[in-house]
Design a protein around this nucleic acid. Structure first.
Lengths: 223, 223
DNA sequence: CGGCGAGTGTAGCTTTTGTTACATACCTGC
DNA sequence: GCAGGTATGTAACAAAAGCTACACTCGCCG
């Protein structure tokens, strides 16, 4: 099983460049984990045992307010790593958020000591680590700026434009959208209503269709 | 001048562990820059020429909303590095925020190519890089969570408890506090007023004195 | 076909935050 | 001590977002 996991990992970018020795170490220490949607994989305050790489599926990282409302911070797609875990690993900190599988997901867990050893020796691991951290810093920064600079309707418009597929369709329920934005369904519903009467979108059960992308873009910069 | 800068840098943590070769490279490429308070050092969208380390003084990194309100993201104290710059350096991105000196500040600039070369060869540089990124991720994450989970009065109470000195005194104007929290002076004034009438703090020109830390703490968790 | 649950639409009300507009206090240099 | 800039106090109003409550629609499954 560990061998298979290694093979799968090696097909993902950075691990292709591993030295033979690194590959051998990886093969010995790797743990493969299958995760099903509803249950949290990591919870806040947990101490971290290693570096997580998503092989298949998708993870969602989110914050949880005391009153129970969630706010998605980012997703982890195949080939990416959970940076908070990396972070906790290098700083010996507790994990600062929750993680949940969005769909059936396979995760490769590289135990902490092994990952540190790989990091010291393998330039490709150094590279992927710094790049991952770096990218996350950028994303978080943008998110933070967005939260303080834009109103909810603008953030909603932004989410629609960013996450809709090529046909301008977004397959998410209003509840899910609300969780992303850190607000409630009713508020999303209300704002959607405004967008509908402005002719910018059409709504349906579990889907939103963009009718007038320019109007949305205008809302973001204009209002 | 470059030699002096190297000396100063070497007195700061990670650079003490440099190899002789690394030290030599550093001595050749280092640029020292003095910065005075009001003018921005980096502005949003600027492309980054190297890694910035603060030798003396203090830098403030902040976001700027379209309407001109600021929100401090974090400070860079001596021995620390500007992680956004590191970030932009490794990902070839534009700098995503503004930076300003808070007081007279000396900055050591290690040009990009040199820093990359050092990163490849020097474990201590790898370490300081990952640690800096890592710490920032953690801070940003906390900040993001705080923004969405707490109300302004709670965030204000938190700021007071975190940033006050040992005597419970915080030397900041309400205007500065407002900038930190991404709001306006009037709102800070109003909330301060509530804290004063609750007997939790005393206010004076450019300073706030905590009278009842427990009340502040209770506000954060309780309300 | 009828009931159930998930998803949505709508309305009114409350709380929180932002805005506007002044008044007042404090400090520094002249 | 007085002028002018800087910092704070206050009050009323406006806007944004959250909360509560309920009606409705659609699709699915028995």
């Amino acid at each position: 099983m560990a061998a298979m996991a290694t093979l799968q990992l090696e097909s993902l970018g950075p691990f292709r460049a591993l030295s033979d020795e690194g590959r051998k170490l990886l093969r010995q220490g790797l743990v493969l984990k299958d995760c099903a949607p509803p249950a949290p994989i990591l919870h806040k305050g947990q101490s971290i045992s290693g570096a997580y790489f998503v092989v298949r599926g998708r993870l969602r990282v989110y914050a949880l307010a005391p009153d129970g409302t969630e706010a998605t911070m980012y997703f982890i797609d195949p080939g990416e790593t959970c940076v908070f875990a990396l972070n906790s690993l290098f700083n010996d900190l507790r994990y600062p958020a929750w993680v949940q599988a969005e769909e059936d997901t396979t995760v490769a867990l590289i135990p902490g000591p092994l990952f540190r050893r790989l990091f010291e020796r393998e330039p490709s691991i150094q590279d992927v680590t710094v790049r991952a951290l770096s990218t996350l810093v950028f994303r978080l920064m943008q998110e933070l700026e967005e939260v303080h600079a834009y109103k909810l309707d603008q953030r909603l418009a932004n989410l629609l434009l960013l996450h809709a597929n090529a046909d301008g369709e977004l397959r998410m329920t209003q509840q899910q959208i609300a969780q992303h934005l850190g607000t409630t369904r009713e508020v999303v519903g209300r704002l959607m209503g405004e967008l509908v009467s402005a002719g910018a979108v059409e709504t349906g059960r579990g889907r939103t269709l963009i009718r007038d992308a320019a109007a949305l873009a205008g809302l973001i910069s204009g209002a």
